[in-house]
Design a protein around this nucleic acid. Structure first.
Length: 296
DNA sequence: AAGTCC
DNA sequence: ACTTT
């Protein structure tokens, strides 16, 4: 199935989008990207006209793909709102067409609990191992893919089971969080209907979820585009590129250490929201990808 | 090295 | 302090 895209009105880069570090389970084989979403293998490629995609085992659903890839976001309008200075403008120039993905909240939540204190390659390994061990297998084009396991599946595991997936101290947090979601103690869908502050308070109550993980889940899967996750790269952006927006004592204190306190986190996140506006999350994603890829 | 917990 | 690539 095809989706035609008007490059001027709907800038989109499949490569930048699926390679930006938001998702951990997509892989490019030849010209095609393969991933699993909504219990289907999705196969995608981009050409001059737009997108071509397939799905398995269900029939391809255009609406789902459009929503998943956030083709409904008016990127030119978002750029005009967040393009406040030369740094973010440079990031937008280099990665124009990078979009946030409308991830499934459950997989997003567990993925970012895994992300604590880990590199992106290590996170990919953990999330793929969890899927291979406890998800359902889908064989497509002679390749095995796996769905992400349901809350009930992970809730029944012991920490020892999951530690075998190389999760370390994250195993206990994942099992406990799975129990809360499986029992209905926390409804991820209900969080979509809450405002940012209320939804974040609920998420922070889960084991393994601090400010950073909560903001990632809110931004990537719960429609809270004002969320501004602060990881090491964004902290670096704040202290290096945007130092003039903070007290010099704050910059000195924060730049000298690896992790930051919740109060310091809130100070930087507040700046992000006030400076970049309602689409701060998009600014975060462009800065993150820009700074992370600058190293190589 | 996309932090959280005690 | 925690854990692994």
């Amino acid at each position: 199935m095809e989706i035609k895209l008007d490059k001027q009105k709907v800038p989109f880069s499949l490569d930048h989008t699926l390679d930006c570090g938001q998702l951990f389970r997509w892989q490019k084989i030849g010209d095609w990207w393969y991933g699993v979403a909504a219990d289907n293998v999705i196969k995608l490629t981009q050409n001059e006209e737009g997108l071509i995609f397939e799905a398995f085992p269900d029939t391809p659903n255009r609406r789902f793909i459009e929503g998943y890839l956030r083709l409904d976001d008016d990127l030119p309008s978002i750029f005009s709102k967040i393009g406040k200075d030369e740094h973010i403008q440079e990031a937008i120039r280099r990665f124009c067409g990078l979009r946030l993905i409308r991830q499934e909240p459950w997989e997003c939540l567990i993925s970012y609990i895994c992300a604590t204190y880990k590199s992106i390659p290590a996170i990919k390994k953990m999330v793929n191992t969890i899927s291979r061990c406890y998800g359902k297998r889908l064989t497509f084009n002679c390749i095995d893919f796996y769905t992400f396991p349901e809350p009930a599946t992970l809730a029944q595991l012991t920490c020892k089971d999951l530690e075998g997936c190389g999760l370390g101290f994250r195993a206990e947090r994942i099992v406990e969080t799975s129990k809360r979601v499986d029992s209905g103690n926390l409804s991820l869908e209900a969080l979509k209907r809450m405002d940012y502050v209320e939804a974040k308070r609920e998420l922070l109550d889960l084991p393994g979820v601090g400010h950073k993980v909560a903001d990632c889940v809110l931004l990537f899967s719960l429609e809270k585009l004002e969320a501004f996750p602060i990881d090491v790269w964004i902290k670096r952006a704040a202290t290096n590129l945007y130092a003039s927006h903070f007290d010099s004592s704050f910059i000195k204190r924060v730049s000298g250490k690896g992790s930051i306190t919740p109060k310091e986190y809130t100070t930087i996140a507040q700046f992000g929201r006030e400076y970049f506006g309602n689409y701060a999350g998009y600014a975060q994603e462009y800065l993150f990808h820009y700074l992370r890829t600058k190293q190589h």
